[in-house]
Amino acid sequence: MKGLNEITSSFWKEVTEARIKHDVHTNPNQGNIMLKTLFNNKNITYKKSVLFLSQCIERKILYVRDVCISNRLMSYPEYIEKHGYYPNSQLDYNLIRNAMPRDMIRDTLQPT
């Protein structure tokens, strides 16, 4: 798992490991897409690499639902309103936006 050694909290490391084990045994095309993890998810990649954004994890931005509103990706202002501004927030948002497969959720630029 990418970035596992960067998690300093033993609790969050255990949670992350449990989630990875769960995801390995779950079909990624089944279930509610909003409950899928953002990080270390083989279906959410940027330049063929899974995401691991430690500042997002620290802010508990962990699932697709944490960056969506009504099955659409949040705009950057909506992201900041929900999660607050932090160093690299624009970079994190852009990475998530570019990594999210368009068939998973509607994009912010599409009409509702």
Rank of each mutant, 00 (worst) to 15 (best):
M1L: 07
G3W: 06
N5V: 01
E6Y: 08
E6A: 11
I7E: 07
T8Q: 15
S9D: 15
S9L: 05
S10Q: 10
S10D: 12
W12P: 00
W12A: 05
K13R: 15
K13E: 11
E14S: 15
V15P: 00
T16E: 12
T16D: 09
E17N: 12
R19I: 03
I20H: 06
H22D: 12
D23V: 02
D23M: 09
H25T: 13
H25I: 09
H25S: 14
N27V: 01
N27W: 04
N29L: 13
Q30V: 10
N32S: 12
N32P: 03
K36M: 09
T37A: 14
F39K: 01
N40W: 00
K42G: 08
Y46T: 04
Q55H: 06
E58H: 06
E58D: 08
E58G: 05
R59S: 02
L62Y: 04
Y63E: 06
V64H: 01
V64Y: 04
V64P: 10
D66K: 01
V67T: 01
C68G: 05
I69C: 08
N71F: 09
N71T: 08
N71P: 01
L73Y: 02
L73R: 03
L73Q: 07
M74C: 11
E78D: 14
Y79V: 01
Y85A: 00
Y86E: 00
P87E: 10
N88M: 12
S89T: 02
S89Q: 04
Q90R: 15
L91S: 13
L91F: 11
D92W: 06
N94F: 02
I96G: 01
I96E: 03
R97Q: 11
N98K: 14
N98Y: 14
A99K: 03
A99S: 15
P101L: 07
R102I: 08
I105V: 15
T108P: 00
T108Q: 13
P111M: 07
